[in-house]
Design a protein around this nucleic acid. Structure first.
Length: 355
DNA sequence: AAACCGAACAACCGCAAGAGG
DNA sequence: ACCTCTTGCGGTTGTTCGGTT
């Protein structure tokens, strides 16, 4: 036995709205409001439409002060940033864009922005694959002649980040399960968010600006700490992205110095309530891993299908339910839930790390 | 000119949450 | 505590339109 229909389907008109229907609905709502009952509204005004259909028509089309089409670059950035933070919560995203409806944004994303972002990502993958090799060589050279780059005393311990971050050596284009890759990237993203704090005072090279414009998801970030963490994260992303994409070698050269800040990272986790934090061995592996994943994806692909939609959706963590079972942290569906993962010790201990 | 195709937009559908009885 | 009803949301489908062959 199914659910009772919300209206009499047989006597309800479907399909595009006529100007007369629009006028009826608009006039009535402007004079009387909805009356708090959409279901009863069409009968009141003599419209052979479902109440839900009336509501949708009003909210998406007839409502005053609506904007249609012509999304600005700034709006694009807001949508992209929010999508990467909170996923497909179109109503929340619409709440940050006055005059835009969730349906509009959803359509815009599905038909244009997604493709735009994918195109950009493909380009960046190719660039990073090239730059990643240069960077790795540079850092390996440094490691071989300057052991202070390692955290003293932790050389022989099992690598902490390798348990959480994809490691290049284990990743090949043939044996990497796409779902693992999703998990890796989401985990990496969680890591980067925490990592961002280490770079909060690090300003990107002015010659290597990016157009990335991380907006605060107003209404989701409530505390000043959330604001600060989000700003820090943005700072790291900006710095890292600028370095990786810049053609200016001096910018890339900053990266080893940037990562030296990781030396104090385990202690910072203590401050976050992380009991007995694992020690940092060589934290750059994760970034090698990221580069190698991207590089392997690019180089292994001849069909061009490697930059699937999963590449973008993997940045959003809301499909990672049940990761605990697989030894990965339980990821919630916003960047700020991810931040919280690092904070409470009991939550961290609920999951065991894959080693 | 007609057929085809893909992009863009509008609308529908089913589900879940919340309110109220 | 449970049930019913309404609303809101997100995914999906349908329709229109412009470009291409």
């Amino acid at each position: 036995m199914g659910r009772a229909p919300c209206c009499d389907k047989a006597n309800v008109k479907k399909g595009p709205w006529s100007p007369e229907e629009d006028a009826k609905l608009k006039n009535y709502i402007e004079q009387h409001g909805t009356g708090g009952n959409w279901i009863a509204l069409p009968q009141k005004i003599g419209l052979k439409r479902c109440g839900k259909s009336c509501r949708l028509r009003w909210l998406n089309y007839l409502r005053p002060n609506l904007k249609h089409g012509g999304f600005s670059e700034e709006e694009d950035n807001i949508i992209c940033s929010l999508y990467l933070s909170i996923g497909s919560r179109w109503s929340i995203i619409a709440g940050q864009l006055p005059g835009r409806t969730d349906n509009d944004i959803k359509n815009y994303w599905n038909t244009r922005l997604k493709k735009k972002l994918l195109g950009r990502q493909r380009k960046e993958q190719q660039t990073r694959a090239r730059r990643g090799n240069i960077l790795k060589q540079e850092i390996m050279k440094r490691e071989s002649c300057d052991q202070t780059f390692m955290v003293p005393g932790f050389m022989n311990q099992s690598p902490y980040w390798s348990a959480e971050i994809p490691v290049a050596a284990t990743v090949t284009s043939s044996d990497q399960d796409p779902t693992d890759l999703d998990q890796d990237q989401a985990t990496l993203r969680s890591f980067l968010i925490k990592l961002g704090e280490n770079f909060s005072d690090h300003q990107p090279n002015s010659t290597a600006t990016t157009t990335t414009n991380f907006q605060y998801p107003i209404g989701i970030i409530s505390s000043p700490q959330d604001h600060q963490l989000y700003a820090n994260t943005s700072s790291f992303f900006t710095t890292f992205s600028a370095a990786m994409n810049s053609s200016d070698k001096t910018c890339t050269d900053q990266l080893p110095n940037m990562f030296q800040r990781l030396e104090n990272f385990p202690n910072q986790l203590c401050e976050f309530g992380y009991e007995n934090p694992p020690q940092l061995d060589h934290g750059l592996e994760g970034f090698y891993g990221m580069e190698m994943i991207n590089a392997s994806t690019v180089t292994a692909s001849t069909s061009g299908e490697s930059s699937s939609w999963a590449d973008i959706s993997s940045l959003v963590s809301n499909h990672h339910e049940g990761n605990c079972q697989q030894g990965l942290p339980q990821l919630q569906d916003s960047a700020f839930e991810n931040l919280r993962y690092f904070a409470p010790a009991e939550q961290a201990q609920r999951c065991t790390w894959a080693v």
